[in-house]
Design a protein around this nucleic acid. Structure first.
Length: 426
DNA sequence: TTACCCTCGTATCTGTATAC
DNA sequence: GTATACAGATACGAGGGTAA
């Protein structure tokens, strides 16, 4: 290390310049603003999501709003008008649809119980599996055909309407980044989202309320039960994905929500994967205890499909019967985690989990997730493959969950005719 | 009141396996 | 032996919720 006191300041060093032979200074870092393309779909490409260097004040700004760019320094706005992508151009030749019942491009591990039903021009596939030692859960995939897509006020019309009539979508702030897709909430406030981001259904474009009604219908006909009023969906989370935007694995199990979550997918195709959370599958997690980081066995009841099933059952029994103090128990759980790790075959990961169910979601498809433990112990992620996609996800915010101060100052009840599937009956 | 927990991302580094 | 691919680990570091 050089001794700082011995270093001599010489201004000649700073003034030294290497002449550039092939480039002409000055090179501007205020890149030209994005101008929209007349070619449909170009505006949804990933390169148009980059930030802007403000031409007025030079401040760098991320693209936060769907409508365009805003400078947080001087207030400069750049909101070019996009060219919408017509429904006709999102048809994918590799996944042809007709007025026959559509085929499936899903996959699932062998132990998943699969059943199929056909109605209303949808192929309804149910994937059933244990979501905890005590609960059976399911994922239902409704695959839409051409009749569904072309229905009056159906997916095609929703898709085209949303592109030009849905305002206010923003990229929400995460811990240390922006969420990459654009979102908006309608109906009951969803506490996961920062306050102020919920709009009443009366301010929503018609596809939003149509989707709530349609998803309530889908829930009704696929569960075989009449859905009680208080369990009907009263909240819709709209997500707009542009090219290369995806959603990491997560769950929808926030407190105060009903155990059923349903999504309508519009636009480009997407892959949706479901898998057990790592701590549940492998039975190990890392915790901080007494200012120390340690890996311990988790105390959740394992499923027979999980690694070290017998050993974990045996260990759980031991913990249950022993009368450990808290620190003794932590210590023993850490030993057990070490033993579990050692019991893995060589080369087998003790953290990674593969997807149990993979859905290939097309335009107009519906996904319904049922089971509280499905959200507690499983996670799902979405990676869109096309240029642009909307996901309209409905939940039930349970009455009594929100405090007086959190209740919306608007009426949440949907005032409209209930969707009944009669236009696509078959 | 305080300490600690976790997070609907992502780029980058590093070690290991594999291909040539 | 060298280049490449991949998985896993880690840095980043703000703020609301919650248990103590």
């Amino acid at each position: 290390t050089p001794d700082a006191a011995q270093l001599i300041y010489d201004p000649r060093f700073l003034k030294q310049k290497t002449p550039w032979v092939n480039e002409q200074p000055p090179i501007s870092f205020r890149f030209p603003l994005y101008t929209t393309s007349a070619i449909a779909g170009e505006d949804y490409k990933a390169e148009n999501l980059r930030g802007m260097t403000c031409p007025e004040c030079g401040k760098c700004n991320a693209r936060v709003k769907w409508e365009g760019w805003e400078c947080t320094g001087c207030g400069f706005e750049h909101k070019p008008k996009i060219t919408p992508l017509p429904a006709a151009s999102i048809q994918d030749q590799n996944y042809p649809v007709s007025d026959a019942y559509p085929s499936s491009h899903d996959s699932a591990l062998p132990h998943i119980k699969i059943s199929v039903n056909f109605s209303h021009n949808y192929r309804w596939i149910t994937y059933k599996f244990k979501v905890s030692a005590t609960e059976e859960g399911e994922v239902v995939h409704g695959i839409a055909n051409k009749v569904v897509r072309e229905e009056v006020r159906g997916p095609n019309q929703m898709w085209e309407h949303l592109q030009t009539n849905c305002h206010g979508l923003v990229r929400r702030e995460l811990s240390n980044a922006l969420m990459n897709s654009f979102t908006m909430n309608y109906g009951m406030p969803y506490k996961f989202i920062a306050a102020g981001d919920s709009l009443p259904f009366t301010d929503a474009p018609w596809p939003v309320t149509e989707a709530v009604s349609r998803l309530n219908w889908a829930d009704r006909i696929t569960s075989g039960n009449a859905v009680k009023d208080k369990e009907k969906f009263n909240e819709l989370y709209l997500v707009a994905y542009l090219q290369d935007q995806s959603m990491n694995y997560h769950d929808d199990g926030e407190k105060g929500l009903g155990s059923t979550v349903a999504t309508l997918s519009l636009g480009g195709r997407a892959e949706m994967g479901f898998r057990p959370k790592s701590f549940f599958f492998h039975g190990m997690k890392s915790i901080d205890y007494n200012r120390k980081r340690m890996t311990v066995m988790t105390k959740d009841e394992p499923l027979p499909e999980f690694p070290n099933y017998e050993l974990r059952k045996q260990y759980l029994e031991e913990i249950k019967n022993a009368n450990f103090s808290e620190s003794e128990e932590k210590e023993r759980l850490a030993e057990m985690a070490t033993a579990l790790r050692a019991a893995y075959p060589p080369k087998q990961s003790c953290t990674r989990v593969e997807d149990w169910v993979r859905l290939s979601l097309g335009h107009g498809d519906i996904v319904i997730m049922r089971g509280a433990h499905l959200q507690k112990y499983y996670e799902h992620g979405v990676s869109p493959k096309g240029l642009m996609r909307y996901a309209l996800t409905c939940r039930t915010v349970l009455p009594g969950h929100l405090k007086e101060s959190e209740l919306p100052d608007y009426e949440v009840d949907l005032v409209q005719d209930e969707y009944d599937g009669s236009r696509i009956a078959k």
